[in-house]
Design a protein around this nucleic acid. Structure first.
Lengths: 132, 132
DNA sequence: ATTCATGCAAACAATTTGCACGATC
DNA sequence: GATCGTGCAAATTGTTTGCATGAAT
């Protein structure tokens, strides 16, 4: 993999952007500063980085693929109301990889966990509206 | 929600089909028997069912949304090689919902876990090919 | 010099939507 | 009979691809 300016910029931008950005968001942010960098390059490279493990791709919402530059094992929480995605840093339950491996014979490399529910902000809003 | 023949057929078909079918697959299966049922109806209703909790939607692979009619809490394993999706029935780790709730203040309803690795069939293949 | 990456625009795939008509309550 | 659901085709959205040119090794 060659070291191109584009790749550098893409990585920098994702890190600078709020986490869990979509390819489109990364492209827009880049485009503002570097109008010549194409969308195809952004898509291609985010994907390539993810494949190499330099980035993690997430398909948690219904919409677009999101990219996360935090490589350390962590989980995610998605608010059913506002669709916001939050990082969840609880103690990893790595032992379950082992469980699955033993029970099914799969070679388990990784696991991802997505929690769903209501975030504090939305919970507060609901209460406010239901007060009569 | 009204009881239409289409909805009945969609539910029946998903149950009959191998699990984790895409909307397109459900549509194709239905179309063979009932050519007048439209793709839009299949998409609309799978989505509606998922929203009501009569079905679970999965965004695990890069491609299309998949639907699962098994409502009991279970997890999934995706083979990195062949992209097949397997059900994983290990003891649910429900207590982690509690952990996240306490640590972050989220109201946690559910969690999903996706394991990734190599399935036995693909593992066997790799060994075969690397034997020299 | 060779090989790989980029930019552009066109192609694709999955999904959604507007609207007139038909079915369910 | 009023309302909600369906079918159709067209519109969107997210993403990928072919190809000629430019950049990195």
């Amino acid at each position: 993999m060659r070291a191109t300016i584009q790749r550098q910029i893409i990585m920098d931008t994702l890190a600078r952007l709020h986490q869990h950005a979509t390819a489109e968001e990364v492209y827009q942010a880049i485009h503002a500063q570097h109008p010549t960098i194409s969308k195809a390059t952004v898509y291609r490279n985010l994907q390539a980085f993810a494949q190499q493990g330099d980035l993690v791709s997430l398909q948690i919402e219904g919409d677009a693929t999101r990219y996360d530059h935090r490589l350390a094992l962590h989980y995610h929480f998605v608010c059913k109301q506002c669709d916001a995605i939050f990082d969840v840093d609880i103690t990893p339950v790595e032992h379950i990889n082992q469980n699955v491996q033993e029970q099914y014979g799969f070679e388990v490399d990784t696991h991802e966990i997505v929690f769903r529910g209501i975030c504090p902000a939305c919970a507060a809003n609901q209460n406010k509206h239901s007060n009569t």
